[in-house]
């Protein structure tokens, strides 16, 4: 087959994928209020973004939520993956199945089911409900990432450690954890981004005591064109790029 055809096609798709983002970044430096025409370079939207107290508050809330949700789901997800890999126990299939269901079911189904649960047990909608919900939808992704790493790992090493008299806990800590560390980090980063980006689940399980960024953005973009959103989007883009580069760097380094 000719070589230029696939390449041109790839280039075209990338152009389409990146065009909206490019527009967003360029227009975040636009002086214009209406947002459609170019009226000169300006940082005023970044300024007005940082002067918006509710926005900055929501940003911190979101970061803290993403940080804690990613951490908790990494701990639980990492342990789940270890359990699935190493132990034989009853109901393993059911456990696997439930994780699969979480990953595959539409977000909105997860959202309403969690809302029903929180109402039933009388949990106040706020940080805790958001944390529980976010950890739940991040969990399967961490499990899969770690499982993938474990499946390529030789089982003789942990057995050797055990034969040398190490307890199960010690063996896990000294042998397995270092092995799965890159996967844990990758899973953590994935969880962090998933949490930071989530709109659907958060719409249902958040309360006014803990306002988060995606919901703030949602109410902003529904009002209409707001140049502050461009500025915010650009900042988020830079932030996730840094995170993504970091994760790639960690993965590459760990392979050496």
């Amino acid at each position: 087959m000719t070589r230029w055809l696939p390449r041109t096609y790839l280039a075209l798709v990338y152009l389409l994928v990146y065009l909206p983002i490019l527009v967003l970044v360029v227009f975040s430096f636009n002086e214009s209020r209406t947002g459609y025409s170019w009226e000169g370079l300006s940082l005023r939207w970044y300024e007005s973004l940082f002067n918006n107290r509710a926005m900055v508050g929501a940003m911190w809330n979101s970061l803290w939520l993403a940080l804690s949700a990613a951490t908790v789901s990494t701990v639980i997800g990492g342990l789940t993956a270890l359990a699935l890999h190493r132990y034989r126990f009853r109901g393993k299939k059911l456990l696997n199945g439930m994780l699969f269901v979480v990953m595959m079911s539409p977000e909105i189904v997860l959202a309403i089911s969690l809302l029903a649960l929180f109402l039933l047990v009388g949990l106040q909608l706020g940080y805790v409900s958001l944390l529980l919900a976010h950890v739940t939808f991040c969990l399967p992704f961490v499990v899969i990432t770690v499982m993938a790493r474990l499946s390529g790992f030789d089982d003789s090493l942990p057995e050797a450690a055990r034969d040398l008299g190490a307890s199960d806990f010690t063996m896990t800590r000294t042998v397995l954890i270092p092995v799965i560390m890159p996967a844990l980090l990758a899973g953590w980063l994935l969880g962090f981004t998933l949490s930071l980006d989530d709109v659907v689940v958060s719409t249902f399980v958040s309360g006014p005591s803990y306002e988060i960024l995606p919901l703030r953005i949602y109410s902003m973009v529904r009002v209409g064109l707001k140049p502050e959103v461009n500025a915010l989007g650009t900042l988020l883009l830079v932030f996730s790029l840094v995170m993504l580069m970091l994760s790639q760097w960690i993965l590459i380094r760990s392979k050496r």
Partner: peptide
């Protein structure tokens, strides 16, 4: 002041009912 918004009486009412016990607003 934490200013949270709604766009219809229906959604305001539904949210207040949802958050009834947690005394959100």
């Amino acid at each position: 002041v934490v200013y949270t918004t709604y766009d219809s009486n229906e959604s305001m009412y539904a949210k207040l009912k949802l958050l009834d016990e947690s005394a959100a607003y």
